[in-house]
Design a protein around this nucleic acid. Sequence first.
DNA 1: GTCTATAAGATGATAGAC
DNA 2: GTCTATCATCTTATAGAC
Lengths: 196, 196
Amino acid sequence: MIRDQNTAEKIMDVAQYLVQTRGYHAFSYRDISEQIGIKTASIHYYYPTKPDLAKALLRRIRGMFEEALEAIDTGGGDAKTRLRKFTEIFLDTYGDDGRLCPFCMIATTQETIPQDVQEEVRSFWRKGEEWVKHVLEEAEELEETVPAESRELISRVMVSSLEGAMVVAKAFNDRKRLEDTADFMLSLVEGGEITT
Amino acid sequence: MIRDQNTAEKIMDVAQYLVQTRGYHAFSYRDISEQIGIKTASIHYYYPTKPDLAKALLRRIRGMFEEALEAIDTGGGDAKTRLRKFTEIFLDTYGDDGRLCPFCMIATTQETIPQDVQEEVRSFWRKGEEWVKHVLEEAEELEETVPAESRELISRVMVSSLEGAMVVAKAFNDRKRLEDTADFMLSLVEGGEITT
DNA sequence: GTCTATAAGATGATAGAC
DNA sequence: GTCTATCATCTTATAGAC
């Protein structure tokens, strides 16, 4: 993890943390400037407007997300293992200090931000859902437990339930709630029987 | 639905809509004042501070929520029917215009608001989870499909997955995503087999 | 109860010097 | 690239008249 190479990335790191813990409208350029020791004008040099900053932020995270998914694919393993690694991305995001999903944070306030930023959110979730669906499709061992008609729905529920679980876990300051939800969703695919 | 009787309620109605569609930090006393034709000072007369307004808002909704649960209990019906009505509370909240859950909205930005407001959020979710768990416990017909050890977990997943589904549905402007998630969660209890 | 007036501070953003 | 200086606006909130 090499970080803080340049100012632009420092800004994004701090902004990302603030988005995840406070939300888009609950942090300011001033908050960022104080934390990294520069003036707000300097932040505007890199990110002229706040939506610019948000968009760059989401793009970066989405890129890291897609890299993580590729790494899972490259790493091999059965569907069970790969899906577990998928849920671990959300657990890692949550971390020890209850960082929520940046896309979820932006989505809750989407009516207040430009279209292109909203599109970043949809792209993220589309990618996650598609990836899960493909894993379900490719896994021969799941043919009986997860019927073809249910795969898209399951992939959607898996993603959105993780998002919801993060928010609730945060409210209760209880990471285990997120872990339990992840385990439950995995159990549906692994051992359970989907009849819908 | 008799509404807008007094100013205090008018304020809460507008504030609730704004919280649900924009988020706590993305609306101001000014927004409210413009929509109902009074000055911001008048709002402060009823709700001295913004957290006061948020707390009153959440208390009211939580009260309505608990009344809705009681109405379901009074109405009778089997577990399947009652749980379906439970999910319909979330669907009704979402409505036609993508209103998110006020508690979810506050939870995402909880680090920026006072403890007593945060507690309102937890109380809401605790109540919902407890209610679902009791329905699962009381339903003899579910004894085999939902083992006792899974009931608490299922009730938690049911609530948090609905919360997450609302956010994602909003991002895609697709109410059906929420409906599908509700159906899926119900199918787990109704016909599926929980093995966790 | 609702208003006017006002305060003190924060906000995103820009111009221009260095 | 980073700074100082400044802007116009918005924000929550209060005091006091009506």
